[in-house]
């Protein structure tokens, strides 16, 4: 029973990792770059929702504050692409890596200056509501996290597989020049996807905040989510979710049954093992061209 209880909490936790990982995958799918500031976008999204919704701040209703926060963060993501990322369009990949690491520090500083560095709690209508199934106790927040994550992953998958913009985004990453030739506005698509990943990050942030207090350093969770994205294979949406859940489940179980320290290392050990055995991740999309 204890194992199942741990696993349920782990799955809910893993969904958060998965959601942040989805943001990585979104950007990787369209521009083949990695946004190391994704975790900090999540943190910023959570704080924007908190700033709008908490009674001590703007005091809007929770159901109004969250969509508003998602919209604001969509604009932030879009704006970051327009103002900063577009400037290094066509530069080597690692320029984006270094740029986004620096951006992450800027986000952290902005959140820290506005909301302070002490932990804050987001007020939600379902704080402390629990559901009981026999001996099993599932909190409303956990259930909501799992349901929303699954729905969002399915939605994004549909977006990439079946809509014109989604297909255009994939084309832009596979061969930019060819995408231009067939008339895809590559830069506009990039901006849109950055906005989308900001919105997804906000959802992740709000769900994270329903489960505990937040402070500007929760963005470091991004590194773990990153491991999740890599385990699933960067570029695969269901893979990211699965990778996140794997990490989420292994972590508390390792913490309970394995000696100390292993739990913290476990996501990275799994990731290294996956990278060594299957360099492209579990849902590999890499095919080597022979020369």
């Amino acid at each position: 029973m204890e194992l199942i209880q741990l696993a349920v909490g782990g799955v809910a936790n893993g969904c958060i990792y998965g959601l942040v990982a989805l943001g990585f995958v979104l950007i990787y799918k369209t521009s083949e770059g990695v946004n190391f500031a994704q975790g900090d976008l999540m943190m910023l999204g959570a704080f924007v929702a908190l700033g709008l919704g908490n009674s001590a701040q703007m005091g809007l209703s929770f159901w109004l504050a969250v969509p508003l926060a998602v919209c604001i963060m969509f604009c932030v993501g879009w704006g970051v692409e327009r103002v900063v990322v577009r400037r290094i369009f066509g530069q080597p990949q690692f320029a984006l890596v270094i740029l986004t690491i620096a951006l992450g520090f800027v986000f952290r500083f902005v959140a820290g200056s506005i909301w302070g560095y002490s932990p804050l709690v987001l007020e939600t209508p379902f704080n402390g509501v629990n559901l009981r199934f026999g001996e099993l106790v599932i909190s409303m927040a956990d259930l909501l996290t799992i349901v929303i994550t699954l729905a969002l992953t399915f939605g994004l998958w549909t977006f990439f597989a079946h809509t014109r913009i989604g297909l255009a985004a994939q084309a832009a990453s596979q061969n930019q020049m060819a995408a231009y030739i067939v008339g895809i506005p590559v830069m506009k698509v990039n901006s849109l996807i950055w906005g989308l990943s900001g919105a997804v990050a906000t959802v992740a942030g709000v769900l994270y905040a329903t489960r505990g207090a937040i402070d500007p350093n929760i963005g470091l969770l991004g590194i773990k989510a990153f491991a999740a994205a890599v385990i699933g294979g960067l570029g695969s949406l269901p893979g990211a979710l699965l990778g996140g859940m794997l990490i989420g489940v292994v972590e508390p179980i390792a913490g309970r049954y394995a000696p100390g320290g292993i739990a913290i290392m476990s996501p990275y050990i799994i990731m290294l093992a996956v990278l060594v055995t299957r360099p492209g991740g579990l849902f590999a999309q890499i095919h080597m061209k022979k020369v």
Partner: peptide
């Protein structure tokens, strides 16, 4: 500047 080509199918 270079046009990007995917690394996934190189």
């Amino acid at each position: 500047k270079t046009y990007l080509k995917t690394e996934r199918m190189k």
